[in-house]
């Protein structure tokens, strides 16, 4: 009887916890607003005015060739700001994800406490978290000052952030692998580098690939932001149009970006489904992908 009562009370904890979260959120929010709720009152009207007067309809001239330099490619769209910007963003994301992965994997191995003792792992964790502390936008500002405007700064900025972010995901994955294969390999007398190559990477390969694809997707989205500070990609065009108050063109670029990200998301789910075990991920319909769009 007592046991049932305990179970019941345990189950009751979840609604209490949920209510606590909701109430605290509203309390902190009202504290931030500081009684000035009027500022929120007209926000919807403002949004509709801004949307219909400035953003809508999107200006699809962004898909036409730029007037200068003269387009020498077969199709006009290949010389358009949208195409050039998105391709550059994809290139920046691709290179920085690849470089980030290559550098972060050894660092993450050193940061794993099931492979190396704390005196080695903790400094590497500090290194990775310090790289992660600065968002890619700040890294981009830093590299634009250091290297100058252009995609190389973008690549450097996103590589640094990728190392920090991916490194953390990787060492958590490595620490989560089963103890048994590590024990068997250690007892055998294999060195740490052999254990990493023969046990750790094969054992966590599915997760590592899945994280790599996630990071690429993430970098494509962030690639558009870093362009705003001059680090190349579609963000460069977005920031230029913003400066000249051409919001309809910004809207068109955002729609292009949205569809590219959705497309990458679909491809990445498809690719990840090959690597994630025991999860029956089906090829998603287009609508479902939009619903889980982040």
């Amino acid at each position: 009887m007592n046991l049932d009562r305990e179970k019941f009370l345990k189950r009751k904890k979840y609604p209490i916890f949920l209510a606590f979260i909701i109430l605290t959120t509203f309390y902190v929010f009202s504290d931030l607003v500081d009684g000035d709720w009027n500022s929120l009152e007209n926000s919807l009207d403002n949004l509709s005015v801004f949307f219909y007067e400035s953003l809508w309809p999107p200006n699809w001239k962004v898909l036409e060739a730029r007037s200068y330099p003269v387009c020498d490619r077969g199709w006009d769209i290949l010389c358009s700001p949208a195409y050039i910007g998105i391709v550059e963003t994809l290139k920046i994301a691709f290179v920085s994800t690849g470089l980030g992965f290559i550098i972060s994997l050894p660092l993450a191995s050193f940061a794993s406490r099931n492979l190396y003792r704390d005196s080695i792992a903790i400094p590497f964790r500090f290194l990775l978290s310090s790289m992660r502390t600065l968002p890619s936008l700040i890294w981009a500002i830093f590299f634009v000052i250091l290297i100058g405007l252009g995609p190389v700064s973008g690549v450097m900025a996103m590589t640094f952030y990728t190392i920090g972010y991916l490194g953390k995901l990787q060492y958590e994955t490595i620490e989560g692998i089963s103890k048994d294969p590590l024990d068997a390999a250690r007892a055998m007398g294999l060195s740490n580098s052999e254990i990493i190559m023969r046990v750790v990477i094969p054992e966590s390969a599915n997760n590592l690939i899945s994280q790599l694809l996630f990071m690429f997707e993430y970098n494509v989205r962030h690639g558009s932001v870093i362009g705003i500070v001059g680090a190349g990609g579609i963000g460069y065009y977005i920031s230029t149009y913003l400066k000249f108050l051409q919001y309809d063109k910004v809207m068109a670029l955002l729609i292009v970006l949205f569809f590219v990200v959705v497309l990458i998301d679909i491809l990445s789910i498809k690719a990840r489904s090959y690597f994630i075990e025991d999860v029956n991920l089906k090829y998603p319909s287009f609508f479902k992908s939009i619903l889980r769009f982040k």
Binding site: D180, P181, D183, A184, A185, A187, M188, G189, N206
Partner: peptide
Amino acid sequence: PERGKLGYIPQKLGLITH
């Protein structure tokens, strides 16, 4: 012990399952 001389088979075998 020197490399390879000792073999340990844990309860869950320690194989890379995939």
